[in-house]
Amino acid sequence: MKILVGIKRVIDFNVRVRVKPDGSGVDLDGAKMSINPFDEIALEEALRLREAGKASEVIVISIGPNACQQQLRTGLAMGADRAIQVDTEEKLQPLAAARVFLALVEKEQPGLVIVGKQAIDDDNSQTGQMLAALWNRPQATFASEVVLEDQVARVTREVDAGLETIEIDLPAVITTDLRLNEPRFVKLPDIMKAKRKPLEVIPLADLAITNDNKLTIDHYAPPASREKGIMVDSAEALVAELKNRGLL
């Protein structure tokens, strides 16, 4: 069984994000870029399934310009067997991204597609669910545990009320939450080895997907800032201040 894993190149989660003064976007100049943390977890899960003998091949996919080959190489160094870059300068919205994945699903016929539950740039949390809808297959979102038996996955999901367990027939889409696993560190020899692993570049146009019904995003603004607070020097002073403000 093949597993497809989506990995998105995003600003590293440790970088402080600033909106450009002209409101045209956020300032990414020189910022450290990484694999979206949730996607790294998706890849780790796929690798563990392969290592447990439940999958035969792990393919990492990224949609974007050549720069995202850097993240694909990291994915290969982590242990993916091969990589596919769907080459485009355009930032695809989730529906188009899901259509790209569907085109690759039709080509590769995987048993599982694993992606992060959201990307930490757009925070959309849509692509996995949309792929499942277009593919007409099950989805298990926000996974914190995945158990594979034959053609069935038993997935524990982190939901507002607690932990929900569901069973889905393969092929299916799983989206990952943070507690699913802890991704491995990449070792130097693996980085060298990754250079020899196959990385296929497919121009977006070759997949002939429809890229319509886009949302118009026309302005970025910094969030409203909170007023500067005060410091108190004792628990008594804190309680007095809270009573004073009618909060206790």
């Binding site: 919205q93 899901a98 809808a133 886009k214 949302l215």
Partner: peptide, 23 residues
């Protein structure tokens, strides 16, 4: 935009052929 809605609404949006506005 609870886990219920975040799971469900993108699937609805895709069936209706549109992108979803989140949050």
């Amino acid at each position: 935009s609870s886990t219920y809605g975040r799971d469900l609404m993108p699937r609805v949006a895709a069936l209706l052929g549109v992108n979803q506005v989140a949050d």
